[in-house]
Design a protein around this nucleic acid. Structure first.
Lengths: 110, 110
DNA sequence: CTTTCGTATCGATGACCTTCGATACATTGA
DNA sequence: TCAATGTATCGAAGGTCATCGATACGAAAG
């Protein structure tokens, strides 16, 4: 999968790159998904299965699965099966990309 | 206005902070608004009036005004009137906050 | 093979969001 | 005062999203 990482501050971002980058930001622009990322990052070993997320989030299993799918399609988490469970993990490289998009070259406010 | 800046990686983000942070990320999670931020950052002096954005975005004046309102309410841009025009400018401190939320303390991926 | 448990998908519902034309407001200039 | 220009708001239309119950899939256990 190819990720866009055109910074917002270098020249003017073109429409295609904006669409791609906005997808990742929109994926994080939901309270539930932000908490999922936080829960995964705080989990022992940096990973957790979906069933461990339902209770702290207070959401149904289909809803949690839906959000995990959005995060997966945005490249923000990965999941690999381990027997009956699927262990999810944050993709830190992807977060690095997003941070870089929002980083000014030197200083922006004049 | 009080901004939340609880990092995703320090412990588990609570629901209230997640809602607040998600608002800013959702504001940036739209291609049009991402381009607006980019256009403002690239503008001479780091600011531009709303009327200068309609043409490069290819959107109507009410639509541009709507997106500027979303960005303003998310604390990502500020606008002050200058005669008939309102000059908008990126709030770099707010972007710093968002970047920090997504920054791991040391390393996350085990 | 059947049951059990974790996960993914489907379909429906209600809320939200983007977009626009029409319109009102604000400021400047004639 | 009146016209012109930039901006904000309103109302509506269309699409997208979050959420759930029901259901199907996958893997392990009995």
């Amino acid at each position: 999968m190819e990720f866009c990482c055109t910074p917002v501050f270098e020249g003017v971002i073109d429409a295609a790159d904006a669409v791609e980058t906005a997808k990742a930001l929109a994926a994080l622009g939901d309270p539930v998904r932000l908490r999922i990322v936080s829960l995964l990052a705080a989990a022992p070993g940096g990973s957790a299965c979906g069933c461990e997320l339902e209770s702290p989030l207070g959401l149904s299993q289909p809803t949690v699965s839906h959000h995990l799918r959005v995060l997966r399609e945005a490249g923000l988490v990965t999941g690999h099966r381990e027997g009956r469970w699927v262990h999810y993990r944050v993709v830190s490289d992807r977060l690095d990309d997003i941070r870089q998009v929002l980083t000014p070259p030197v200083a922006v406010g004049v």
